[in-house]
Every structure is written in structure tokens, then in C-alpha cells.
Nucleic acid binder design. Sequence first.
DNA 1: GAAAGTTGATATCAAATGGTATCAACTATT
DNA 2: AATAGTTGATACCATTTGATATCAACTTTC
Lengths: 143, 143
Amino acid sequence: MQDLDEPKYTISTAAKLMGISVPTLRMYEREGLIIPYKKSSNQRLYSDRDIERVMCIRKTINEDKINIEGIRRVLALIPCWAIVKCTAGDRSNCEFYSGHTKPCWMINHKKNICKNKDCRTCEVYRSFGNCASIKEKLKELLP
Amino acid sequence: MQDLDEPKYTISTAAKLMGISVPTLRMYEREGLIIPYKKSSNQRLYSDRDIERVMCIRKTINEDKINIEGIRRVLALIPCWAIVKCTAGDRSNCEFYSGHTKPCWMINHKKNICKNKDCRTCEVYRSFGNCASIKEKLKELLP
DNA sequence: GAAAGTTGATATCAAATGGTATCAACTATT
DNA sequence: AATAGTTGATACCATTTGATATCAACTTTC
């Protein structure tokens, strides 16, 4: 058996696996498009699902021709409040709810429902993981 | 009194008004970002609301650094089906509902609720008009 | 009918973007 | 301690992208 979420590849291995450079992989992270697992020593580890996500990002950049800023803006449209079921209080304590340029996981939530969540495993972050459109999520939420 | 939706500027006047070139304005149209009024002779006319929309597009490109393809993808996320209240039949006869790369108004609807609609005046198209985020629309639809 | 402005299309240009190479400093494993 | 691989950061390159200029053909308006 295999666990798609198990962090097992170092950054150089993952880069080799996808035919890209290590700095590129770090860039995607800096830009908020991916959240790799981090050991206590700060070393990154990538799971198979992470690999899939990066391949999706690459496809969106290289084939669909959407730039990184554009991808980020699309991710910022994921209606997280409806997914994690925010209360009114959660919302008023959320920078993301009022902003619209960054995905929620790029924000340091301090005093709401997301405070103790690990974004890497959160359904919101994963909504874009397999390159399925966010629109499918919207159709689900807006019947 | 003034009607913001009255088509009154020719393309050269509108271009001059915004300090851009005529081909640029035509490009935005070709890319599906704006729908100017067209006289029977095919001549374009721009309203004040059109001007506002173009200024919003420019801001998104020049300040927010999102490329045209990215803007189009964002527009493609507007949940039109929930706005114009599509029936199940309307949806099954809608290319847009299944796709996710183009805004609905770039699609030639033949046999559903949008068939006889003028996209230029449709609420869906206008959702991005004043540069208010689509996210606001989502908040409204997903309480 | 003449002048002015529009149409679509093509070619071109400057700037920005994604990506890579390279660096010294640090960490882990042997 | 020594090797191998990581970290973040900077600088650089090739390509793409947004934008413009220009063109002949067609409309509108005076």
C-alpha cells in the first residue's frame, strides 16, 4: 500500500522527478502555490500528492498561460468560509475574508477557527490539488 | 442627468479618454474582457460604465500584475448558473457549465436561458464591472 | 463625393515573467 | 571530521506578453 500524503521525497529528488530545478520548486512555495511538509530541521519533504499539485501548477503556467499572480488570485477565490464553516466571529477575525488577493493559507490566522489548523492538510488548500477546477467546488456548494 | 450605460463614446474618443491606444481597446474585447455596444454598422460605442470596466482591467493588469489569461480564468469562475437561476435543462445545454476557462459571455449559447439574453446588460457580465471582487459576489451567494 | 474615422489584421517593440545558476552558510548522516 | 545535501538569497537569461504603429478597405457624416 502507498500513502499519497506521506512526505517522502527531498527537494532535489522531487525536482529531478519532475524535471525542474530546486529553486523553481522553492519559488512556487514562496509564491504560496504549494506547502511542502517540513521536518523540525526545516528540511522540505514532498509527498506524491505534492508532486501532483506541482505538475498541476506547471500545466497551468505553461499550457494555460496563466501567470503566477493569476493563479494566486484564482486560489484566493476559494470560498473557505463555506468549506470550514466559519462562524460570524471567525470571519470578523479573518484577514482573508475581507481581502481577495491571496489564498487563505498565506495568511497568519491568529484568533479564529484556522488558528490551530494545518493548512497543508486542510480541504481548502487541497481544493486545487489535483488540478480539478475550483469551479467544480463552487457547483457543489451552489446547487 | 446622466445614464452610465448609455453608449456614447467612439473607440478613438474612449481610447483618448483613458490614455491608451485603439488597438489595445480592441484587444481587450477580443480577449473577452469587455463587450462594447455595437451599432448596426458594427461600429463600437462605449458607455461610462464601459470606461470604468476598462480602467479596472488596466488596474488588474498593470498594478496587480495578473495577465489577461488569468483575468479570463477568474471571470470564468463567476457562478452564473446561480445568478441567472439556470434550470437543470439549461445547464445540460450549456458549454460553460462544464468548462472552466472562459467567461460565459464568450460562449455562443444556443438553446438555454441565455439564448436571448444580451450579455452586455446581464448581471453576470457586470459582476466584474466596477472592479469589485468576484469574491464579494460569492460571499453574497454563500452566506 | 470628399474627408474623417472606423474596421480587422499584421508586424514590431519594450518590459516583465518564469526559470536557472550560483553563492556561502548550515544540517544531517556516516 | 568529512562528505553530501540542504537552506535562503542574489543575479542573470530567454521567452513571453501587453501594447503600439501601421496598413488597406470600408462607413459614416458633412
